[in-house]
Amino acid sequence: MAALLDVKGVSLSFGGLKAVADFSLSLAEGSLTGLIGPNGAGKTTLFNLLTGVYQPDVGEILLGGQRLNGKRPYQIAAAGAARTFQNIRLFGDLTVLDNVRVACHLRATRGMWAAVLRTAGYRNEEAAIALRAMRLLELFGLAAAAGKQAKSLPYGQQRRLEIARALATEPRLLLLDEPAAGMNPQEKGKLRELIARVRDEFKVTILLIEHDMSLVMQVCERIAVVDHGVKIAEGTPGEIQKDAKVIAAYLGTAESGAAAE
């Protein structure tokens, strides 16, 4: 299968700190890959690089063969990458439905004048978008909350709404940043099912940052491990669990004596 995402030798420094160093990663179309590593290893920085929040100092990022370097975040969204956030960042003052609808508009074709004049085409498109947004909310069990302000939702629902909003941009690549953070074991179980379902129903390629090892090991087909901005291992969950470098990164080594953060 062809690679959907190709990260080639990407580096990024903040002043003297090398946040990401010569990082390469290739994701097959439709795959579900975990990205793990100790805190501060550079995982979220990688997501920021992939979505145009940061630009790499060197290296190249290709999504479906299209170069993402130098593109603005909204252009990258248009190219097919969407994400969620470690600390939930919804449009809190908008309704649940509007959070999803705003993201749907990326794929809308009618322009400003059509909207001002409320042409038939615009109205039809808006109706179709509202329908699509509601379907997404139903899939995520949020339909009943459609009219509520996003910030009034309970935590677990906010996390799900973030995923729904990301899917509304019709991405080919979905980046999930610690979706299970703060969830109880029961919610995590549901999330695991949801992630698998999203991948199958939406035919998206998923890259998942997660600290919950059992979740990562169960749901991901491949795992990449980052430490200090460097990819130290990549392989199947079984391989990763046995990898000496990974164990050292998490637990510290006898030589350095450094404990994992």
Binding site: T51, G52, V53, R72, P73, Y74, I76, A77, A78, A82, R83, F85, R89, L90, F91, G92, D93, L94, D98, R101, V102, A103, H105, L106, A108, M112, A115, V116, E126, R165, A166, A168, T169
Partner: peptide, 25 residues
């Protein structure tokens, strides 16, 4: 209108609006 929705989204959070495909500038 959807421009209005985009404007409100940008006013809540520029960065997220951009990542959700809204041309912020």
């Amino acid at each position: 209108t959807r421009m209005g929705k985009a404007m409100r989204a940008v006013s809540i959070d520029h960065n997220i609006a951009g990542l959700m495909g809204i041309p912020v500038d």
